[in-house]
Write a protein that binds this DNA or RNA. Sequence first.
DNA 1: ACAATAGTGTCTGTGAGACAGTATCGA
DNA 2: TCGATACTGTCTCACAGACACTATTGT
Lengths: 240, 240
Amino acid sequence: MKKSNRETTQTEQHFLQEYDPQQFPPVAVAVDLLVFTIDEGVLKLLMVRREEMPFQGMLALPGVFVGIHETLDQAAARGIREEAGLENIYFEQLYTWGGLERDPRMRIISVSYLALVPVEKLSITAGSRVSEAMLIPVEDVLNGTIDTAFDHGAIISYARQRLKNKVEYTQIAFELVPTEFTLPHLQKVYEILLEKPLYKANFRKKIMPMVEEIDKFTAGDAHRPSRYYILKQRKNHKNK
Amino acid sequence: MKKSNRETTQTEQHFLQEYDPQQFPPVAVAVDLLVFTIDEGVLKLLMVRREEMPFQGMLALPGVFVGIHETLDQAAARGIREEAGLENIYFEQLYTWGGLERDPRMRIISVSYLALVPVEKLSITAGSRVSEAMLIPVEDVLNGTIDTAFDHGAIISYARQRLKNKVEYTQIAFELVPTEFTLPHLQKVYEILLEKPLYKANFRKKIMPMVEEIDKFTAGDAHRPSRYYILKQRKNHKNK
DNA sequence: ACAATAGTGTCTGTGAGACAGTATCGA
DNA sequence: TCGATACTGTCTCACAGACACTATTGT
């Protein structure tokens, strides 16, 4: 109970009180963005090609450094805007990576963010301002077909697994379709995320309570039209 | 596709290539530890009383700064060892907090870690080296009975919610009991974490496939003895 | 014998899985 | 009419919820 003196070891050292920049030099903090979408029936990720060393020519996750007067969420939102040209898309903090060898030049701690966007929203800005960003099939990264810079392969693998898990017990898959969607479309999204086929009837029974039907149908296809639905109430699936 | 020049805006700025310490000054990175245990039938948290400004006299989460040659997990393990006197307990990264007003003196980004320890393991070291650490009922923090320093109240609230969620779909509750445990004991842990009573028969049916009975029983109580069990295989519940 | 807690048997309802059937479009 | 996809009905089974019952200890 007695006050610790200067001879105390680190053991008794109180948090924040004795910050010594010599012993604990500051490090750079960045956010890495994992912007997932479903395009052409496969899960894809927004990535950029590095034009400089290290890892020149390889693909990397888009990211920005965290400004001194910027929260982590603000930095993530800025990165999504600047690197992907997107506004108001779903994102949540994923995991923070602090390995020593992440970047060969300096110690960087990076806070990764998982973002989801329906491809319809993404295609509006594709090819415009953000010239370097491109959609890469996640499968190609995971099986090693495409090499990635830094530890981004591990980050992508982690994010893919988390996404798969969260689809099971949250409504996060709805973030990958437009506000108005058909159930066959949504089912396809689930199947891609879960990597397994689902039974139509069972899927509908599960989803129906969450959605509300609207008076809008697909048209022009050589088969029965599909009704559009909207999500009843968007539940919060962060911190789950 | 052409190489960006010095006149590019932040929009085209590539990650890591143009790190400018003026624009993005380094910040201090710390880990905050949320060491939960169940003691006297309630969920408690290991906290320390601050003896200096700011927030003097208030309770805070134990934490340490991240060393320049130390990963985040290593820093967390060190904090658990130095602040709680514990080794080899379960911990996982929880969330990273980067609010601007977290600490009135400087910008600090803190990576919080959720740790679980059976109280039997904690009591061995209680009152010994780590004199400042004490067990605080989480309920008292959440309902405002006890004031906490910094944004630690919000962090604790977040961790409590996450813990409750993860109990539902992982085996994380097993981290709060010793290797050998009785089912009534484990059930009590579940009830405390979930904040609701469970039916004995149903709980046993759910748990039985995960555990293996051993030839050991409680004794000395004025009622039927309770058999001890061990967890069959500890599943990984991180990244869920 | 009795209090107290450990542990079991069983009924019920819910929801997922599986699959067969019907509905509605364009060609 | 036919191919194709949307959509529905229903059987089964696993499992959670609810509750009544039996088992084993110390006093």
